[in-house]
Nucleic acid binder design. Structure first.
Lengths: 100, 100
DNA sequence: GATCATACTACGGCATTGCCGTAGTATGAT
DNA sequence: ATCATACTACGGCAATGCCGTAGTATGATC
């Protein structure tokens, strides 16, 4: 119970802080989630093997395989991430870097 | 057949280009995929409602709900993406922006 | 105090994917 | 010919994705 209370207070503070930072973004349209993604294309453009690609961006190797072989379709979150990897690969690396 | 041939050639060229660009990254360790992610925390820090959060970064609203309610655990790709959203939110927005 | 909108919780439910493992093939190097 | 690397192929279960509906909490407006 105290936990929930703290959580609420904390969330409130965080939210307030965010608003004060001016990062409260209302209109959020114009976003595009690709229904299809050419994983192999993205990977080869980066010059990486399936294994390196998986290792570098955190994917499970098995998933990369399934995607490239057309056995499975990357789901929404994966498609978004793949898009980010394609367009902002360095940002992804930074975000996943262990020590800042 | 011609198609595969072209694909191979193209892949080869892409790969070569990548190498020439110096983006051929061998050692790919030091990457960290968080086993747990506090979605609510990430979202509130950004000052967004569940709906805005979903809309802004491309998530399905239902997924965000399930994650925050502890009903489902975001899977690997989702966890990675959430991490990127947390640390490089602007990069994600850029990557998903429709026109350029 | 009643009403209304917004935001979140809660959950049923099926199809689909995640992810692990194993085995086979292609290719370039030694 | 042998060996290592890289990719294809697939069995298989547990788990999530995602859709929909309904109920609750809260602040605003009158």
């Amino acid at each position: 119970m105290t936990k929930t209370a703290f959580d609420k207070i904390k969330a409130g503070l965080d939210e307030a802080k965010a608003y004060l930072d001016g990062s409260a973004n209302k209109r959020a349209y114009g976003i595009h989630v690709p229904p299809k993604v050419n994983v192999k294309k993205i990977r080869t453009r980066l010059g990486l093997s399936q294994e390196s690609f998986a290792q570098t961006y955190g994917f499970a190797l098995s998933a990369v395989r399934d995607w490239e072989q057309g056995r499975r379709q990357p789901e929404r979150s994966a498609r978004i991430l793949l898009r980010v990897v394609e367009r902002e690969p360095e940002a992804v690396k930074r975000a996943l870097a262990k020590s800042a």
